[in-house]
């Protein structure tokens, strides 16, 4: 299991790896690992390909209590080939889970927007699952001036 998560963390890509290498502090390190665990659970240990996902987040969030997040995945959204689930995890919050969007062909587009809480400057990791069982991943860093989550 441990091995798998490490591999998954690598699969999730450069962002997560950079964070681990830079090291920041123990807290961020543990949170990044938990986020990688969540991703591994979501993909069942399968490798995710980088790309197809656009993450819109402010570069600097002044107030971590409410940060707009838009995720869109480039997909045909037909009955035969659509994005079914999109997992969003945080590498710097007390808990990695943020939100999971579930789409159907009736969604028309694999795109959703919400507002999230961010405890600190961190990476947001997004993993999309298609109806064909493929996984795509992307990540984006967001700098947080004042943390949310009631810290």
């Amino acid at each position: 299991m441990r091995n798998m998560t490490r591999r998954a963390a690598l699969a999730v890509g450069a962002g997560a790896v950079t964070l681990t290498v830079v090291g920041w502090n123990q807290g961020a390190h543990a949170a990044a690992k938990e986020a990688a665990d969540d991703v591994a659970k979501f993909t069942g240990g399968k490798a995710a390909t980088q790309g197809k996902i656009t993450i819109e987040l402010p570069e600097i969030a002044e107030n971590g209590n409410t940060v707009p997040l838009t995720v869109s995945v480039d997909a045909p959204m037909t009955a035969e080939n659509y994005v079914s689930d999109v997992l969003v995890v945080s590498e710097g919050n007390p808990n990695p889970g943020v939100v999971t969007f579930h789409f159907t062909p009736l969604s028309g587009k694999a795109e959703a927007q919400t507002r999230i809480r961010l405890a600190a400057t961190q990476n947001i990791v997004v993993v999309a699952k298609t109806s064909k069982g493929e996984f795509y991943a992307a990540q984006k860093q967001v700098k947080v001036t004042i943390g949310g989550c009631g810290g």
Binding site: N65, T66, V67, V98, Q113
Partner: peptide, 27 residues
């Protein structure tokens, strides 16, 4: 859901901000 068929759903964690806002599309 639209006419009884699922369109979109979300599993929400505490990291979603107060007064949860969701924007999505439907065909």
């Amino acid at each position: 859901e639209f006419n009884g068929k699922p369109v979109f759903s979300a599993t929400i964690e505490p990291a979603v901000a107060a007064n949860p806002y969701l924007q999505f599309t439907a065909k």
